[in-house]
Design a protein around this nucleic acid. Structure first.
Lengths: 214, 214
DNA sequence: TAGATTGTTAATCGATTAACAATC
DNA sequence: TAGATTGTTAATCGATTAACAATC
């Protein structure tokens, strides 16, 4: 298969297409043209067609795109047609929030384990998962098929924990810690740096104020 | 002042520079060249110099950049030299996690109020903030100076809540709900779409598998 | 068939990288 | 002064938009 590397900009937009198509589907819309969709999403129709054609021709000339079909296909591209088992490392507020978030499972991301170093948390149950201690992790990963680990712990422990995860076969890390992880190149890291997001917000807030002071 | 619009790509990178400079500062590093920093951050030295020169010449030929000075200046650009009051709308798991996150306050983002519609939560205290009911919000915003509202609630209430916030003078929304908010153009929206992040992770995971199946 | 809309090529735009003169 | 490194211009690269032939 001649699966060329798709640009990151395109991948970044895919989940958003998926979301809009899901909404159209809920509204019972059967077909949509790139032009209609472009209006809704505030992007160009050209971009939509270019993006989709990275993966193949999902549309039909003179008709547009079948919403259900396109939704399903993008879902497949994003890997939402299969189940991914996920563990959460760090059972603090954020870790627990992720563990409690029901919607992920609907998309095929199933939280199967939660780990922490704090013995106070040991055995506490979150949506059917008892919090386990970190020293149980290596054995757990041998016994269970886990693809994704969400890292929701302070940055000082993050690097060594990431190494431990990689050593035990984890292939994808959803990183919420405030640092850039150093991992082998076959391990995927997706960063969610909340504080950086908040700083961008702050930048724009000041920017606006500055501009109007002129 | 001739504050031109800086490209989003540059803004996106600023908080990361800030983070690295903060670490250098902690390590007692006094000066750094764009070349050294580029090695650490795995970007080009050219990009660093271009990015910084959008805001002015912070360096010195033959010397490089003074870490403390550059750190402070980027902080100012990002608006971290002032305090921003923030409220959280939605006291679910994620809202509580944000409210409990101590680091934000260090950067000048102070959680001053938490709101929810669920009467069960009324009066529960989170780091000194009692959860208030949504009907108290308009009066609260009249009595308090709040710039930022974090939206951590289900998407079906998000749009109308955003409208309410905007009507009551909120100028920046940190949106965690899974939808694109429609707000007046002077209102800043910074999105954190966790499920989209997870989908990108999933895409890359499958991608890798696919490529090696060849 | 005629009209609509895609898939795709070509043109444009913007962002990144390279190069180097300015200067500390 | 000589060496180092910035600030900045020019060259390259990639991504977005426009245009249109293909085709349903």
């Amino acid at each position: 298969m001649d699966e060329k590397c798709i640009s990151k900009a395109v991948i970044r937009r895919l989940p958003r297409y998926y979301r809009y198509l899901g909404e159209l589907l809920e509204d019972g819309v059967e077909r949509i043209s790139s032009n209609e969709l472009s209006t809704k999403m505030r992007v160009t129709a050209s971009q939509i067609r270019q993006d989709l054609n990275n993966f193949g021709g999902f549309g039909q000339q003179g008709y547009g795109y079948n919403v259900q079909y396109l939704y399903t296909e993008i879902g497949k591209i994003l890997g939402l047609d299969r189940t991914h088992n996920m563990i959460i490392i760090g059972a603090g507020n954020l870790g627990q929030a992720l563990a409690n978030y029901v919607q992920f499972e609907k998309r095929g991301f199933k939280v199967v384990g939660i780990f922490d170093v704090n013995p106070v948390l040991k055995g506490i149950s979150i949506r059917g998962n008892e919090i386990l201690m970190m020293d149980e992790l290596p054995q757990y990963l041998k016994d269970n098929d886990v693809q994704i680990a969400a890292l929701t712990l302070p940055k000082n422990n993050a690097e060594e924990t990431a190494n431990l995860l990689v050593e035990n076969g984890i292939k994808a890390i959803w990183n919420f810690a405030h640092l850039d992880l150093e991992v082998p190149e076959d391990v995927i890291v997706e960063n969610v740096h909340l504080s950086e997001s908040l700083m961008r917000l702050s930048y724009n807030l000041n920017c606006y104020v500055t501009e109007h002071k002129k």
